[in-house]
Design a protein around this nucleic acid. Structure first.
Length: 256
DNA sequence: ATGGCCTTGGTACAAGGA
């Protein structure tokens, strides 16, 4: 079983690239972030034609998430975080096969002294409680998406220059470790990886060509699933497309 | 160089992203 996450930065722009990627990478489940589409504009028919069921939760202009699945629609779908009032469409959860999948578009946070950072902290608190409850009900769980957190210094191309800036603050990293503390593991770090592995590169400054990026897109798997994880990789290929998303997909492979 | 680029909404340029 293969699961993946990809921040597409506008599904309206990236739909052809998504369909190309799915044809080349027939995953069993895929969560998308930053679809930037209201539900009435979501391209469900095109995705169905590619062989995927899809649940989605979007809004105009910003945010928006989706959960694609092959071999049956996701069950028991939950949109956003129950009990956390939020006008922003950032979370979609569903059961695919035997796995509970939570897809999240974590808030950016803008800057550590901003109102958006305060929102990010509150959102992360709510997410943690939600994941804890989901985990209790569904031991086989995957939490994946655009976390907007670089968990360690090796997840940033210049951790000295970027120390304390958004995505690298101690507060954000503590929240990442809080999620790990629920009984999750960073699937990417279960394996030897190339040095300077990133999942996002700024559109500016020729950042992709110079590999000046951040690893902020993650797949966390529960302890019950950890023994089944056989691989986890970042697929840089779509970042080489014309008009690419600034994020690359991350893929995890589970045995059975 | 508190920038650069990309997307949206809307049709000029501001906001947001990370």
């Amino acid at each position: 079983m293969k699961l993946a996450t990809w921040n597409v930065n506008s599904l309206a722009v990236r739909l052809p690239q998504l369909l190309d990627w799915l044809a080349a990478n027939p995953v069993d489940a895929l969560v998308l972030q930053e679809t930037k589409l209201t539900d009435d504009k979501f391209p469900a028919a095109e995705i169905a034609a590619a062989g995927y069921d899809v649940a989605f939760h979007g809004q105009k202009t910003y945010n928006g998430v989706a959960l694609l699945s092959r071999g049956g629609a996701a069950l028991d779908v939950v949109k956003n975080i129950p009990g956390f009032a939020d006008e922003q469409a950032r979370v979609i959860t569903g059961t695919v096969g035997a796995v509970r999948v939570i897809g999240g578009y974590f808030p950016n946070g803008q800057a550590p002294d901003s109102d958006k950072f305060v929102y990010k902290m509150a959102w992360l608190d709510a997410l943690r409680a939600f994941v804890q409850a989901e985990l209790a009900a569904h031991p086989k769980l995957v939490l994946m998406g655009d976390f907007n957190i670089a968990p360690e210094d090796r997840d940033a191309h210049d951790p000295v220059a970027l120390a304390g800036t958004i995505h690298l603050t101690p507060e954000e990293r503590a929240h990442f470790q809080g999620l790990i503390g629920l009984g999750l593991v960073d699937a990417f770090r279960l394996f030897e990886q190339p040095p300077k592995s990133y999942s996002w590169w700024d559109y500016r400054m020729l950042a992709f060509r110079k590999n000046q990026g951040l690893r902020i897109d993650h797949i966390l798997v529960s302890e019950a699933l950890k023994p089944a994880v056989t691989a986890c990789t970042i697929d840089k290929q779509p970042r080489r497309n014309e008009r690419p998303s600034d994020h690359a997909p991350v893929v995890v492979e589970l045995s059975n």
